[in-house]
Structure formats: structure tokens, C-alpha cells
Design a protein around this nucleic acid. Structure first.
Lengths: 136, 136
DNA sequence: GAGGAAGTTTACGTTAACGTAAAGCAAAAA
DNA sequence: TTTTTGCTTTACGTTAACGTAAACTTCCTC
């Protein structure tokens, strides 16, 4: 499974992930991406492409760009740091895990509500159909 | 299990859910809550209290207030409506369900990444400890 | 009856995450 | 060579979801 490409232009990334170039530059501005440059123009590595995926995933989970950036640096800087620093990271990791667990619960609840709504909806449709039946 | 209360003041709700009264009034402004009034002051029913729970749950899932409001009207107006309307509702329900499924996948991925980060973090800590061991 | 405490409306301020327009460079195509 | 295409920076505009302050009732308490 050879890697498709080694580098990407900004518009390649934009169209692949269906976001604007404005957004991509904004993510860089916020410290989420660090493309290299050929002259003035940005060159994105495969690593940057992976980051784009992660950014969008984080957004779908309702994380702010700042939180996502923090998760990135958490990921990048894990191996180094003092013991204090490492313990802090463990803290943050557990914190994030707790958030995700809460989200799982929330999703389960909303799914139940959707089940309920769908059932009511289906019943109403059945009702309409049986009325039509009678009328025929 | 008798219901605790039949009605709530705005500050009761605010402190229970740990939000500001400003937010609660804002949710009303956006059509998410419909408290009755005694004179000028708002009276919140148990139903309103349930809605507060749902609002916060929706927010934790990254939904906008507009989306939450749409889900509410979806819930409220399901039994009525024409066949066209009902089919549209089914559409929306399936759409939301798809979003939740995507979120579940996203959560699973992020959890894996957290596992990974935690492992690396733990390894680094172990490394520090064994170094200390040697030094003693 | 003077002063809180809790509620209200009105309205301007703020932050995040971009949108959008203007003006310019640089390489490739016509 | 002109023109188009793609990229760049700069900068002001916009929306959502409130924060915050001002000025005002109403009720309770001292």
C-alpha cells in the first residue's frame, strides 16, 4: 500500500476534505498545521494530511480548535518532559476520556429519543394509510 | 417517586444546571423554552426542566441551539402533519441518526489515540522510575 | 419607608471560526 | 506577450452563544 503522494497543495487538501483554503490557512494560523514552503506557497506533507483528518474528527465531536491543538501537542510532546509534566498529561488524558464517556452516554440517550420519535412518526404514517384504505 | 417540584424559578434552574440566568433567557429567546409568567417573572414547569436537560445534552454533542430547537419541534409536532411532512421528519430522523453513528466512530478512534498516548506516557514514567532506581 | 434580594428589559461587548473582498506575485497556457 | 490560474497576504465582515452593564419593578425585611 504505497502512499498516494508525498506532498499536497492547499487546494488539493481543500477539495479532498471539502473545506475552504481559508479554513486550512486558519488552522495553520491557530497552530494546528505546520506546512513547509516552496518560496511563498505552502507544501503539505502526508503528516499534515493526517492532521487534517484529526482536526475534522475533533470538530465533529464538538471540540474547539484550541482543544484540538492541545491534544496535538499532548500527542507530540508525550515522550519528553519531567515527571510533573507527564503526570499532568495523564490528567488531561483521563479528563478527555471522561468527556468521551459522557458523550457516549449522551448519544445513547438521544438515540433512544430518536427511536421514540421514529416510532411515533411511523404510527402516524400507518394511520394515514389505513384511512386511505377505508376511503377506497 | 413523587415529582420534586411543579414549578421552578429561573435562578433555581440556573443553579441546578450550573448555567447563568442569561443563558436560560437566551434559550427562551431562541424558542427552546416557553415558561409561563406570573406577572413579569418567569415560571418554569417540570417540562421546561426536562428541556433544560435536553438542551445541555445536545450541546455536549456539539449541536447548535438551532438544531436542538429543530429536534424539539420534531418531537412535538410528530403526531400531526401531512404525509409529506411525516416523510420529511423521517428523513431528518435518519439524518440525525447518521450523525450520531459518525460520532460513535469518531469517539472510538479518539479513544484509541488516547490509549496510545497514555501508553507512551506510562512508558516514559516507567523510564524515569527505573533511572531513579539505578541512581539510588 | 429605606434598603436589599431577585426578577425584568434593553442594549452594547466579546470570542470562535471562519467568509469575503482587495490587491498582488508567479508560473503556465494561449 | 498577454492572460489565465493558483497561490499569497491583509483586513474588514459575520454568526452563534452568550457576557456584562445599566436602569427599572416588586417584594421582603429591618
Amino acid at each position: 500500500m504505497a502512499p498516494k503522494q508525498n506532498s499536497y497543495s492547499i487546494s488539493e487538501l481543500a477539495s479532498e476534505f471539502d473545506v475552504t483554503t481559508r479554513s486550512i490557512r486558519f488552522y495553520e494560523d491557530q497552530g494546528l498545521l505546520h506546512p513547509t514552503r516552496r518560496g511563498q506557497t505552502r507544501i503539505y506533507s502526508r503528516q499534515d494530511r493526517v492532521r487534517m483528518k484529526l482536526i475534522l474528527r475533533g470538530k465533529r465531536l464538538g471540540f474547539s480548535l484550541a482543544e484540538i491543538r492541545d491534544l496535538f501537542s499532548l500527542w507530540d510532546e508525550t515522550p519528553s518532559g519531567s515527571q510533573k509534566q507527564l503526570n499532568l498529561l495523564m490528567e488531561i488524558i483521563h479528563q478527555k476520556r471522561a468527556e468521551l464517556d459522557q458523550q457516549l452516554k449522551d448519544i445513547a440517550m438521544v438515540q433512544l429519543e430518536l427511536d421514540n420519535a421514529e416510532r411515533r412518526c411511523r404510527d402516524a404514517l400507518d394511520e394515514l394509510r389505513t384511512q386511505k384504505q377505508k376511503a377506497s
